[in-house]
Design a protein around this nucleic acid. Structure first.
Lengths: 227, 227
DNA sequence: GCAAAAGTGTTCTTTATACACCCATGT
DNA sequence: ACATGGGTGTATAAAGAACACTTTTGC
């Protein structure tokens, strides 16, 4: 962090533009989806998509910036995000040096009330993407898979109240792996981070399931799944 | 990552200076130490220490930058580092906006062949530090503790060949926790990431221990310690 | 021969896995 | 009455934890 103290040099040190990008995951129809947004930067990019993002302003932290861009460009607010990685390849933006601090977040909010072209896409069937966004999504997915194994982060993919089957499906979709129903339930309830919501499902054409909610506020660490 | 395409605006977007900081850990006399370097930025900082770091240059990635600063300022080279977190608080540097991409690394190289004032310090007895470096070290330590539990990262704290007692001590020092010798050895050998080096300790005033080395090159994930 | 760390097995407890049937509701 | 997903227990296997003595070397 040492930098020269000569004021006349400071201008030359400000060579890079700072940006943020955010990978937002959501489960739709039992498939893990990522939020994409149209990128239109002629002559470099047209008819192409990428993850939402944008500039960091002088008076903002990276995190402030992400919240603003999520809201303005994708209509997504009130979701928890966490820092993923900072991408600093010299040529990652065709217009010049742009260093991006990437974040990732989870949501159940499927509505994307925004004027921009925004859509959800199966993470396994991504189209060609702008910039290094494919690599950013790949890294976010790795992080998500790792974190569901030792934290309660899965909470972000579920509504406030959910059934144990919903919870199981969420894990199965993220980890791409099936679990035994009885063992799954035993294990989940043993952790103590769930409590019954005191109600049952309604309007289903089968026996209604008990509803549960998380009894912990923020993401906590547990030993959830090992492999 | 969308940014305005108007060239005349791009200069105003370059408001921040980019820097890297690196937290280097090493075990010395059964204590986890961190490498500190004198920070001298009058009138803001004098007689104060912090972790090594410095500017990112226009043609460098953050990672390139860290390797350069580690070598030039602390005389440390040939160590593996990984990205830790990007610190972007607006006021973290008294001279203006500096966004720092922080890294952390492990080493056994205790010699710090450098002209700058560089020294190793017990992570539990840190003095007052410049900038937000105390927070950076705290985050690095959390990451290190987490990663020894599910990767072979501990390798970075050990010489090429080491005894099982050395390995146990390394885990104990990092996790601040004692292990049972027999159970520890059984478990470590069961993973298969160790192999005998075919030699024994020499010059010790007790029964010489077998030497081992890691049979894996880079850091790999295993289920090493749960709690 | 003594001090110092190395090396080594067994028992018990806890956790994980495999597995199949009846239940409550909507249509 | 039937189709659909909900809800439950037990037996076996695997992993983790607790625990003490003999061995090899330098001095």
């Amino acid at each position: 962090m040492k930098l020269t103290n000569k004021k006349q040099n400071r201008k030359n040190l400000k060579f890079a533009i700072l940006a943020t990008d955010v990978v937002i995951f959501s489960i739709r129809e039992n498939i893990l989806n990522v939020l994409l947004i149209e990128i239109n930067i002629p002559p470099y990019y047209k008819n192409i998509y990428g993850v939402p993002g944008g500039l960091i302003l002088p008076e903002e932290t990276a995190e402030d910036s992400v919240y603003g861009h999520m809201k303005n460009k994708a209509g997504i607010k009130n979701i928890d995000i966490e820092q993923l990685y900072t991408f600093s390849s010299v040529d990652r933006d065709p217009r010049g040096r742009v260093v991006s601090v990437a974040y990732f977040g989870l949501t159940t909010t499927v509505e994307t009330s925004s004027s921009a072209k925004v859509y959800w896409k199966d993470v396994k069937k991504l189209p060609k993407l702008a910039y290094d966004h494919k690599g950013i999504i790949k890294k976010a997915l790795e992080r998500l898979k790792a974190k569901v194994g030792y934290t309660t982060i899965i909470k972000g993919l579920l509504p406030k109240e959910f059934t144990l089957s919903d919870l199981q499906t969420a894990y199965e979709v993220v980890l791409n792996k099936k679990f035994d129903k009885r063992n799954f339930r035993k294990k989940m309830l043993s952790f103590g981070f769930l409590k019954t919501a005191g109600a049952k499902q309604t309007g289903v054409a089968n026996r209604p399931a008990d509803l549960y909610k998380f009894s912990v506020g923020s993401t906590q660490t547990f030993d959830i799944f090992r492999s």
